[in-house]
Amino acid sequence: MAEHLGFSDLYYFSRQFKKHTGLNPTEYRKQIIGRTVKEMIDCPQPNETELHKGTPLS
């Protein structure tokens, strides 16, 4: 990611990232992945009837 954003020095990128987000890139990634997994677990999944509501089943 650092290189994609134009940073050639990974250490400098990490410091700037932490300065702006409050987390280093690894901490941020773990937090985002954890949140995404939790949202997927907590999100109710539609049942088959809801998926096809309003559309004829063939």
Rank of each mutant, 00 (worst) to 15 (best):
M1T: 07
M1P: 02
M1S: 12
A2L: 03
A2H: 11
E3K: 15
H4I: 11
L5N: 09
L5E: 07
G6H: 08
G6I: 03
F7G: 06
F7Q: 06
S8D: 12
S8K: 15
D9N: 15
D9A: 13
D9H: 14
L10P: 06
Y11S: 11
Y12M: 09
F13P: 06
S14C: 14
R15A: 03
F17M: 05
F17E: 03
F17G: 03
K19M: 09
K19N: 12
K19A: 15
K19R: 15
G22V: 13
G22P: 03
N24E: 04
N24Y: 07
N24F: 05
N24S: 09
P25H: 11
T26P: 00
E27R: 10
R29D: 03
K30N: 10
K30P: 00
K30S: 03
Q31T: 10
I33G: 01
G34S: 09
G34A: 06
R35V: 02
R35C: 03
R35L: 13
V37I: 15
K38A: 12
E39V: 09
E39A: 12
M40K: 11
I41Q: 08
C43M: 13
P44R: 14
P44F: 09
Q45P: 00
P46Q: 05
P46D: 09
N47M: 05
N47Q: 10
E48M: 11
E50N: 00
K53F: 10
K53Y: 13
K53W: 08
G54E: 01
T55L: 01
T55M: 01
L57K: 00
L57C: 01
